[in-house]
Simulated assay, not measured.
Amino acid sequence: MPDLTWLAWALLGLAALIVGLSKTAVPGAGTVAVAIFAAVLPAKQSTGTLLLLLIVADLFAITMYRRQANWRALLRLAPAVVVGVLLGVGFLAIADDAWVKRTIAVILLAVIVITLVRRRISAPVADAGPHRVAAVTYGTLGGFTTMVANAAGPVMSMYFLAARFPVKEFLGTAAWFFAIVNVFKVPFSIGLGIITGPGLVLDAVLLPMVIAGALLGRWIAGRLPQRVFERLVIGFTIVGAVYLLVG
């Protein structure tokens, strides 16, 4: 069992709850969980430990929203995501923790700015002429950020928001996207040594909180107006990115 203080356990429990909540209700909140894990555990170890909890939460999200996925959008993203993951593997192998955190934060903030500007001056991504360029850009960034810090939630949330997906379609598409990508990352994470024995023990202890968060999120999602949903996604994304930048 990892030797942690009661405060550290409390923070990790809260983060696990947020993991489940982010998968079934408010995707942007996942960045807060990333930040908590990175603050309590060594940054690279936190990535491997959090990955397995995310996969469990992905299973709940798929069960709840499996029929709402936009597979056309997922297939459009797939090649760029694979490239991004492989770039992330290389980056994670050579970069230190501080460099990783700040790089991800800068990317997240840039994506927020670009998406908000795009929503004001152009048509939705799904209907716009350059949607393939958007898919390549967001897909590569999403693959890179999910590999190095499990922080692709905000990146892909910005893409799905720009595509103007309704809440349920947004959540269903995101559920399948992250389920597939997170499983794809497991062999690389094992090879990099960021999935460890103590991390597996920690995951077993925190698993009930992930399940509770997923069920709570399902209840919230059915009562969340589209406008409030979008503002929460953007708000949590900004909070998490700023924390990674200055933390």
Rank of each mutant, 00 (worst) to 15 (best):
R231Q: 14
V85N: 03
A151W: 04
L92Q: 07
T47N: 15
A110R: 09
L108S: 05
M158K: 03
P130C: 09
A135V: 07
I180S: 06
Q226R: 14
A134L: 11
A15T: 04
L4R: 06
A8H: 13
W6H: 13
A57W: 01
L4K: 06
V167L: 14
K101E: 08
L21M: 04
V85M: 04
T31F: 10
L4M: 08
T63L: 15
T5P: 01
L4W: 07
G142I: 01
R223Q: 14
V85H: 00
V26H: 02
A25G: 00
V242A: 09
V83F: 10
F178T: 02
F184R: 01
G84Y: 00
L54F: 13
G191H: 12
V167T: 14
V233P: 00
G48Q: 06
Q226A: 15
F91W: 11
L77E: 03
L7P: 07
R227G: 14
A179T: 12
V56I: 14
Y159M: 00
R218D: 15
W6M: 14
R67V: 11
V34W: 05
L4T: 08
A152T: 04
V111A: 08
M147W: 05
R218I: 10
P79I: 02
V117A: 11
V239Q: 07
V85G: 00
L202V: 08
A69N: 06
M158N: 06
R118T: 12
R118C: 09
L87M: 11
A151P: 01
G88R: 01
A175S: 06
A128C: 13
A162N: 09
K101F: 06
V210C: 03
R76G: 15
